[in-house]
């Protein structure tokens, strides 16, 4: 993943497997970039469509919506919060509200309110997980269901349609030749990367995930940091949902289904430890690129959907298994 490797990556990852064998060491550093190159080579030979600007732009655009969630989810995994399963609900909340509120308060305020309310969902998750110590899987699953219910009840309908075509135009349009959605994703990724690797909050996040009680004893506000990761994820999912709604100009309650799985897959395949304490945004995005390319090749090859799911499932199980194995060698 040298193309997007950053300085902080080298800081921490180079030592991670210092006790492992050289082969393991080499694989852990270059494995993902090798895999990405392999997929690109295979795709280029097997399909005439794959290696075209149009296809890559396609991949990039479809990657962007999920990519924004991946940035947030990275924080949840790094802080040791396992996973945020309320993402589908938060995305739906963002999409439904940003469309549904348009006729009332206009497109931009609608988007902002949608994201803010998504953040509220995240703070409830965060309060439960960080301050009350509820298991994150249960807490986010429960809160997601509750939030979705409230939004649906408030909106009243089953599907919400857009009322402001110009906002759709903007989101689907381009700025400096780059699709707006892609731009927003890149900005989110940069901000996320800055926070995790350069800011005190990011250092606290890594410390909390790395050793909760030592971080607590080092005057790190561990509870707030843990809660914060869920707020960050919810804000990201809110933005993602809002963009999704504006792009599609319609939103159903199940619009976000499957996004949590894709996001977790990308983060884990990117080598971010599910046990917390280790990972970076660029790594997670590398994982996302790999998964997206692989899916694209499978689609172009005509691989049936169930088989695609099978491959991705194997991938996530393999990545998690690898993480535990490496953790045993490296950290133990």
């Amino acid at each position: 993943m040298s193309e997007i490797a950053s300085e902080t990556d080298r800081d921490s990852s180079s030592e991670r497997f210092a006790r492992g064998s050289r082969l393991v060491d080499l694989l852990s550093k270059t494995g993902l970039s090798l895999a990405i190159v392999t997929v690109i080579l295979y795709g280029s030979f097997s399909s005439p469509v794959f290696f075209t600007a149009g296809n890559f732009l396609n991949i990039l655009t479809s990657m962007s919506i999920i990519g924004i969630v991946v940035v947030g989810m990275t924080f949840v995994l790094v802080v040791g919060g396992l996973a945020d399963l309320s993402v589908p609900a938060t995305i739906a909340c963002g999409a439904i509200l940003s469309l549904g509120l348009q006729p009332i308060i206009g497109p931009v305020p609608a988007f902002i309110v949608a994201v803010a309310l998504a953040g509220l969902i995240g703070s409830v998750n965060g309060a439960l997980v960080g301050y009350l110590g509820v298991n994150p899987i249960i807490a986010t699953l429960g809160i997601g269901t509750v939030a979705l219910g409230i939004v649906q009840a408030a909106v009243g309908g089953v599907i919400v349609y857009g009322a402001n075509p110009s906002s759709a135009e903007f989101v689907k349009g381009r700025l400096f030749g780059i699709p707006v959605v892609v731009l927003i994703f890149l900005i989110t990724a940069l901000i996320g990367h800055f926070i995790l690797s350069r800011s005190f909050w990011g250092r606290w996040t890594l410390a909390t995930g790395g050793n909760y009680s030592a971080a607590e004893a080092s005057a790190v506000p561990v509870k707030a940091v843990k809660a914060g990761a869920f707020v960050i994820t919810a804000l990201a999912a809110g933005i993602s949902g809002g963009l999704l709604g504006l792009t599609l100009q319609s939103a159903r309650p199940l619009i976000g289904q499957g996004y949590e799985f894709s996001a977790i897959t990308a983060v884990v395949v990117g080598g971010v430890s599910i046990m917390g304490g280790f990972g970076s945004v660029p790594r997670a995005i590398a994982g996302l690129i790999f998964v997206q390319l692989l899916t694209n090749v499978m689609v172009l090859e005509g691989v049936r959907t169930p088989v695609q799911g099978f491959v991705l499932g194997i991938l996530i199980a393999g990545a998690v298994g690898m993480d535990s194995a490496l953790r045993k060698r490296g950290i133990a």
Binding site: A207, G210, S213, A214, I331
Partner: peptide
């Protein structure tokens, strides 16, 4: 258990508080 963050460097451990 309470002293070090094992996966962090000496530098990152020292500056934490």
């Amino acid at each position: 258990g309470d002293g070090i963050i094992p996966a962090m460097s000496i530098r990152e451990n020292i500056s934490l508080p």
